[in-house]
Simulated assay, not measured.
Amino acid sequence: MSFLNSLNISASALTAQRQRLDIISENVANIDTTRTEAGGAYRRKLVVLEDKAGDLSFKDSLNRAVVEKDANGRLVRQDYSPGVRVSAIVEDQSALKTEYNPQHPDADADGYVQRPNVNMLEETIDSMSASRSYQANVVVLNAVKLMAQKALEIGK
């Protein structure tokens, strides 16, 4: 694997974790939203990550990574972009919270208000996980950069 592939993998992970943090921020910002444009209380959103290669088997992934020779004997590499991507942003279908508050403008006939299914503890843990993943990929980027600098110094 070339160092450029390493950079691409880490860059895709940074992008995915940034989007994950954006969704977590949106969830926290809407923790008290009882009315949305779609109607009803806000539903927690979740980020679904997947391998950029899709549903390739290990054998197929290995074959794509192998350097081959073309008809002229030159080394060629199949076009393959490893990494991670956000495949979907889905709404959490767990039950909404209910709260008895007959004075609330969104209360039903019985006086109950539908509250978002956002749990601050879960969002905090998810944000810590996304931040740690982001930091780990920054470390990888810096390590690859340092290796490239040291390789350039060899030629001096």
Rank of each mutant, 00 (worst) to 15 (best):
L146E: 15
L152N: 15
D106F: 00
S127E: 07
I125K: 10
Y112E: 03
Q114S: 15
H104C: 11
N142Q: 14
T36Q: 09
Q17L: 04
M147E: 09
V113E: 08
M147D: 06
T36E: 10
L146S: 15
R74A: 08
V76M: 11
Q17G: 00
A53M: 05
R35S: 14
V47P: 01
I125M: 15
R44H: 12
E99V: 11
A107W: 08
S131V: 03
P82Q: 00
A130D: 03
L4W: 10
Q78E: 12
S61L: 12
L4N: 14
L121G: 02
S131K: 14
E153Y: 00
K52L: 05
K52D: 02
Q103I: 05
Q93R: 13
T36R: 08
L4V: 14
T98L: 15
S61W: 11
T34M: 04
E122I: 02
R64Q: 14
A95I: 01
R115N: 10
M1Y: 07
N8V: 00
E37N: 13
A130S: 09
V28N: 12
G83Q: 10
E153C: 01
A143D: 09
Q17A: 05
Q114I: 09
N63W: 09
L146C: 05
P116E: 10
M128G: 11
V144P: 02
A71D: 08
A38P: 00
L21I: 07
N5M: 03
D60F: 01
L75M: 14
R18N: 06
N5C: 00
S129E: 13
V113F: 11
A41D: 04
S25R: 06
E122F: 02
V140H: 01
M147W: 02
D92R: 03
S127F: 04
M128E: 14
I24H: 06
T124Y: 10
A53W: 02
D110V: 05
A53S: 14
L14P: 00
Y42E: 01
A130L: 07
N8A: 04
D55Y: 13
V48L: 13
V144R: 05
Q19K: 12
D106S: 12
K156H: 08
L146W: 11
A95L: 03
K97H: 12
I9N: 01
N72V: 00
G54L: 04
S81A: 07
E99S: 14
V84I: 11
S129R: 15
K45C: 06
T36D: 05
E99Y: 12
V140S: 06
